[in-house]
Design a protein around this nucleic acid. Structure first.
Length: 228
DNA sequence: GCGACAG
DNA sequence: ATCTTGTCGC
């Protein structure tokens, strides 16, 4: 499975929404993900402001030490437009291409985006989880949908994210007095474990180490390609 | 109809 | 997401 194949979804936005409604039924929320996974991966994508050349990276860390144990990347061209709610149709293909080059299979994957905190309960993290058949967690920097109170200012404090009176995630403070993260389960996990895992992977920065490192790698790849 | 709107 | 320099606060 390479990028060309993955990219050939050939869907228009309307068909993408229909596909999401189908796939959303396959998303499984488990009472808990492995209490202490051996490895945790982070994924991210970057590209030029008005460009279609995408770079994806996946970094695998040892959960206990947060040391990098494996990583891979891929690039490709995307034509699907950015539409709130349809992000996965832009980022998933190149992300899966990067995953395919990984030698390791992580126990859980942290994603830069929403999980079930999505209008149709299938954000990028959930969609990726279905493809990989792995537990995934959505760690978004901002809100797509849902309502919530402001969480306390201390690290670890959180406020439930509600969508149609349902708790779909947590607005989690990963650093004292710093803008909180929108954490939601992607697939094969649940709100509580997604929140615990995200906090356990967060150290000195707002973003958890796995996605933060993936973001870093993805940026240097793009800048390297830009200067050549 | 109007406003919101991951990356 | 990305464009961009300095600057305010812990």
């Amino acid at each position: 499975m390479d990028f060309a194949v993955l990219h050939d979804w050939d869907l228009d936005p309307r068909q993408a929404v229909a596909l999401q409604r189908e796939l959303a039924q396959q998303v499984r929320l488990m009472p808990t993900v492995a209490e202490s996974p051996a490895t945790v991966a982070g994924v991210d994508v970057s590209y030029e402001k008005h460009g279609d050349h995408f770079f994806a990276a996946v970094v695998v860390l040892d959960f206990a030490t947060l040391n990098v144990v494996d990583q891979a990347w891929a690039d490709g061209w995307v034509d699907f437009p950015y539409i709130p709610g349809l992000l996965s149709f832009r980022e998933l293909p190149v992300l899966l291409a990067a995953f395919h080059r990984l030698k390791t299979v992580p126990d859980v994957v942290l994603v830069d985006g929403q999980g079930i905190a999505h209008p149709r309960r299938i954000g990028l993290a959930s969609h990726l989880g279905l493809w990989l058949n792995l537990p995934t967690v959505g760690c978004a920097k901002s809100r797509l949908c849902g309502v919530h109170d402001e969480p306390g200012v201390m690290r670890g404090e959180a406020a439930p994210l509600l969508l149609a009176d349902e708790v779909v995630g947590m607005v989690l403070r990963t650093r004292e007095r710093v803008k909180p993260l929108y954490v939601s389960p992607g697939h094969l996990t649940d709100v509580a474990s997604a929140t615990r895992l995200t906090l356990a992977c967060t150290r000195r920065y707002r973003m958890p180490e796995p996605t933060r490192l993936a973001h870093h790698l993805t940026n240097q790849l793009r800048r390297a390609a830009l200067s050549s």
